[in-house]
């Protein structure tokens, strides 16, 4: 079952001088098992959009359904539906608060009222998923870890809730290149092994281009493009209008193509780019 947004509009601070329409008539379906990237300029409505997906914000107009249940409804069904969607906010490590890594990750499962042995099982699995060794980290203070490790503990806290849908808002912000690679590969592994649906907000175009199968571009509160990354990145003009940069690889290939080198502009990874450039240079030399 999917997450469905039907004609969703959202207005911040209605009736005040600061009134601003953050979402305009959004129609979007996130199917089960998808891995979607959401990109857009700051203020384009990305975060507002995903905060509708687990009921943190209620649409001013329109309906959000998770597995067929309207999130804005009252009662147990809506509460359970909201619980299916786990949200990792920006800088989630700011939300760590417990004395040990174990207690921090266990906070969610304990609140669900699970028995102690199942809580521990969930914590083990969650830490394993984010690449932290249970024996080495469970008893440590989360505040004495590196930035990347703290980020992973925080993500584990959401994974431990066993969400059907996982939303990550800028999970790599502020991490060094190795930390970025690790976080992204862990998300991919989680997606591939558990089949969890992932919605990933990121400014890191290279990563988004490489990871996701479907990309949604937000611009001015509306969806301006929606499709596979390779197609999206061909729409240079629309992306520019949305204030979004094409990935570095795409920009490089376009620059080379403009200079008359016959390269494949659809290359997305550094390997593809290098291979395509090498082939183009060799072709030119042979003629």
């Amino acid at each position: 079952m999917p997450i469905v947004l039907k004609d969703v509009s959202y207005i911040y601070m209605p009736g005040t001088p600061y009134e601003r329409t953050a979402l305009k008539d959004i129609c979007l379906t996130v199917a089960e098992g998808e891995f979607i990237g959401v990109i857009g300029h700051t203020g384009s409505g990305k975060s507002t959009l995903v905060q509708h997906m687990n009921g943190l914000l209620k649409p001013t107009r329109g309906v959000v359904e998770v597995d067929g249940v309207n999130l804005a409804a009252k009662g147990d069904a809506a509460r359970l539906a909201r619980r299916k969607v786990g949200m990792v906010f920006q800088y989630p490590e700011h939300q760590l608060f417990e004395e040990t890594v174990f207690d921090d990750v266990a906070f969610g499962p304990r609140n669900l009222g699970l028995p102690a042995d199942e809580v521990e099982e969930r914590v083990r699995l969650a830490l394993d998923f984010v690449g932290l060794d249970f024996a080495a980290f469970a008893k440590r203070s989360p505040f004495r870890l590196s930035g990347g490790q703290m980020r992973r503990v925080a993500i584990a806290g959401v994974v431990a809730l066993n969400p059907d849908y996982l939303i990550l808002d800028e999970p790599s912000a502020g991490l060094d290149p190795r930390g970025r690679d690790e976080i992204f590969s862990e998300v991919v592994r989680l997606h591939e092994t558990t089949g969890v649906t992932v919605v990933l907000i990121s400014h890191n175009m290279e990563e988004v281009a490489r990871l996701v199968k479907r990309l949604v571009v937000m611009h001015d509160g509306a969806i301006s493009l929606d499709g596979p990354p390779r197609e999206i990145f061909r729409h240079g003009a629309e992306l520019k209008a949305a204030g979004v940069d094409v990935p570095g690889v795409t920009a490089l290939m376009e620059r080379l193509a403009r200079r008359g080198l016959d390269v494949d502009a659809a290359a997305l990874t550094v390997d593809e780019a290098a291979a395509s450039i090498a082939a183009a240079v060799r072709r030119r030399k042979s003629c």
Partner: peptide, 14 residues
């Protein structure tokens, strides 16, 4: 644990 700029990376591969 760092990256090179894209152009440097591609140049090295070439």
């Amino acid at each position: 644990g760092l990256d090179a700029p894209l152009a440097a990376d591609v140049a090295a591969r070439l």
